[in-house]
Each structure stands twice: as structure tokens, then as C-alpha cells.
Amino acid sequence: MIPYNFDYYAPATVAEAAALFQRLDAEGKQPLYYSGGTEIITIGRINRIYTEAVIDLKRIPDCRQAAVQSGKLVLGSALTLSELYDSRVFPLLGETGAGVADRTSRNKITFGGNICSKFIYREAVLPLLLTDSEVRIAGPGGARQTPIAEAFDGQLRLGRGEFVVQTVTDESYARMPYVTIKKRKVAAIDYPLVTVAALRTSEGIRIAFSGVCAFPFRSQAVERMLNRRELPLRDRIDQSIALFPAPVISDIKGSAAYRELVLKLVMEQTMRALGGE
């Protein structure tokens, strides 16, 4: 049971949702956009998040869209992780998302919700980072489309009242060779010790990480190092880890030292699978 009350709104359009937010915010309702809602429910249950109004985005057709428009794959933020996996429209995204939680939870957890998660993993963002995707964001000030590299800095930078409507990805990326690996402490269902997603483009291998540092990231410096084929692969991996934007974390899932061991193995496996020796 959620120990406090809130109102539930299910707007039909993006504009309506943004306007609702603005009004409810002005009324002091501390509104929250609600997509899969799994985090609001579970965190709300233990009083770690509070709201007097939730705005469900699932009935907005734009947020449920999955279409190819002039070579661009447009994916709505309220698609569930299971839908993305089952549809096979973007296998790298589908499979990376399929590492989150468990199947039945993923029938509820949405793409946008995962990217905007309060937890540190947000694994569904990795494919977007790898493919230089863009994010369509809407809010009281209107709509904007921003490259993910600008919008995402450990977490998605959203203005007050803004929400993710869709992501836009060049369709050609969906056909490139990819690898996505999630390693857990021991159990089949758990947060990651290490999640690595990678893509081979004509210019080289791109790689993004979750669970390693306190936020998901893709780093140009790391990729440059990893693509220096003149160096032995293991040296490249060792040196690239030194270039990570933050320390490798230590938590109940694993110490930094063990995480680093697993990370190196996964990176090696990834590079080999993509022909990056």
C-alpha cells in the first residue's frame, strides 16, 4: 500500500501532459510523470518519494510510438522493455533492456522510465549513447530534440516539467554488429556488477558501461584507447579503465577490485566478439 494519496491523470496528448504538470506544480501538488510506474510505486511504498499527482504518459500515442520515419527509428518512451525486446526493431536496445529486473517486471517497466530511473544503472540508455541517438523532450516550454550526448550526463538533464517523449535513432545502427553483456554477482536476477554494450561501426568500436561507476557512461577517451589496434588488447583495456570518468564502485554486489576483474574479462570478450583484437 502506498501510504499517501495522490490524484491520477492520464492525458491523451503531449501538450496536455505538459500543461497538466505546469498547473499541478503551481498548485503545489509536486506532480510526477508516471510511465511504467514501478519505481514510483515501490519507492513510494517506503515513503522515499512523495507526490500528490501522477501524470500517466502511457495513453499518449506519441509515447507509445514505434515507427521508422525517413530512415530514423522513432521509439516512444512508454514502450515497455518487453515490447522492445519482443519486437526486435532494435536488438541492441531490446537485449540490453532485457537484462533489467525480470520478464514480468519488464512487462511494466518502460524505456523512458528506465532511462530516468533513480537507481544508478539506467541500462536502456547505453544503446542510445552508442548510436548517437537524439531525445525528443517536451515540457511546459514546448518541445525540443537534443543529441543524447548533450542531454545525458550520468543522468538525463530535464528541465522542470519536462519529460521524454521519444528517442530518434538512425536506422542504420540497428543493423550493425553489437554485443551486450550483463554480469551479476551470482544470481540470474539482480542489479549488475558490470553491464557493457558495444557496437562496431565503420570507424571503430563504440562501448558504453553501466554498473561500473556510479552512473552509466560512454567515453570518447576510453573508445580512442580501445581502438588503438597497434597496442595489445589487454594493455588497451588496462589503460582505458584508467580513463574512466569516475572510480569503479564498491558495494554489496562486489568490491571495486573484483568488479574490475570482471570488467576486464567482459571488455575482452566484447572486443573479441566485435573483431577488435
Binding site: V68, L75, L79, D86, S87
Partner: peptide, 13 residues
């Protein structure tokens, strides 16, 4: 409705 494929080109495998 989900199964009918909200995802474009979605083959339901």
C-alpha cells in the same frame, strides 16, 4: 493490444 505490436515491423516471435 501489446501483442498486436506497438512496435513497427514487429514480428512477434
Amino acid at each position: 493490444p501489446m501483442r498486436k505490436g506497438s512496435a513497427a515491423n514487429g514480428s512477434d516471435t
